Simulated assay, not measured.
Amino acid sequence: MTPEQLISFARGAPSIDIIDVEGLKAAAGRAFDADPVGVTAYGTSVGYLPLRKWIADKHGVTPEQVLITNGSLQADAFLFEHLVKPGDAVVVERPTYDRTLLNLRNLGAELHQVGLDPDGLNVDELRSLLESGVRPKLAHIIPNYQNPAGVTLSLAKRRTLLELAGEFGFTIFEDDPYADIRFRGEALPSMLSMDTDGRVVHASSFTKTVCPGVRVGYLVGAPETIGGIARTATNLYISPGQVSEGIVHQFCVSGDIDRSIQTVCDALGERERVLAAALREHIPAARFTEPDGGYFLWIDLPDDVEVDLVVPEATARGVAVVKGSDFLLEGGNHSLRLAYSAVTTDQIDEGVRRLADAIRAVAKQG
């Protein structure tokens, strides 16, 4: 079969049709008009100060608790480097973001993956791990529309996780870039907002709500934690990108951010529904939990379907997917992560048809 135009379920990025390009162009003009010195000069390592205050107000904290970074992945890396030493135990979800695993492995962390239920982290499994004597330095949690599994941590489990952090003395790293991309259900409070014990460090990003190219993420935590990371950041790059942060600030204070979020939510909600329907029609053996928001849907295929064989067959048919094994220390050989953010609705059914054809080709080989 000759590959047709690539249909990609691989990348968690919004398609250009749902990015407010005109709004960003206008915000750029306002940023240079309002603060030409601030956006063109070196800043400080904590980021563009007006945006820092806007983020602090959003989360109900003081600006001293906020540090802006070049994307949330850098925020993750800063916190990991600040807290984790070689040999330290770290709890992560099973499955979890592949770059989280990579960064923590590179630091020499002792990783413990705890399984996910349809309502988020299996807190009973976590308690058993803790009671066995494991004392993690931190637990990395993606609470809303988790990457890659798409599940959301329930309110009850958020409370339990905070209790366990207090009882066993670890930090919760609430990695939360998808929180605003909700198209079903009610918003849940962040663990940061529920924390009364200084146990939570929160990270988020404007990648999923504005556009990936701005590369603006941030950390919110205790002032001493943020201050320590800021000193490291100063030595690394003096300051993050002031121009992009100035543009994001103008985009936020104008209210354009709210319209952008609504556009993304509406589009992704429709795409997820179309994707789920196509999977039920063309790959009925696939098992999955529909997410209430975010960018990703995780599917489990029958045990005789090896995704190491499916992926090249899918590539040959012009459809890109990501293996489940990329998100696990072991296993995931029969699972795929599908991102529905960069595909338009008219591509989804055809993409799933091609994927189904690839799975059938693998079955014939067996």
Rank of each mutant, 00 (worst) to 15 (best):
I18K: 10
I18H: 07
I19W: 09
I19V: 14
D20G: 01
D20F: 01
V21M: 07
V21D: 08
G23R: 02
G23D: 06
K25G: 11
K25T: 11
A27L: 09
A27N: 09
A27H: 10
A28N: 14
A28M: 15
G29W: 07
R30E: 14
A31P: 12
F32D: 12
D33A: 13
A34Y: 06
P36Q: 05
P36L: 06
P36C: 04
P36S: 09
V39L: 13
V39D: 12
T40P: 05
T40K: 08
A41N: 14
Y42W: 07
Y42L: 11
S45C: 06
S45L: 03
G47I: 05
G47T: 05
Y48S: 04
Y48P: 01
L49T: 13
L51H: 03
R52W: 00
K53D: 08
K53L: 06
W54C: 08
W54I: 10
A56W: 08
K58C: 04
K58G: 03
H59D: 03
I68Q: 03
T69C: 05
T69F: 01
N70G: 15
N70Y: 14
N70A: 15
S72A: 10
L73N: 08
Q74C: 11
A77E: 15
F78S: 13
F80V: 09
F80D: 05
E81L: 01
E81V: 05
E81S: 07
L83P: 03
L83T: 00
L83N: 02
V84L: 00
V84M: 00
V84W: 00
K85S: 15
K85C: 12
K85Y: 10
P86A: 07
P86I: 03
P86E: 07
G87Y: 10
D88S: 08
D88H: 09
D88Y: 03
A89P: 03
V91K: 00
V91S: 04
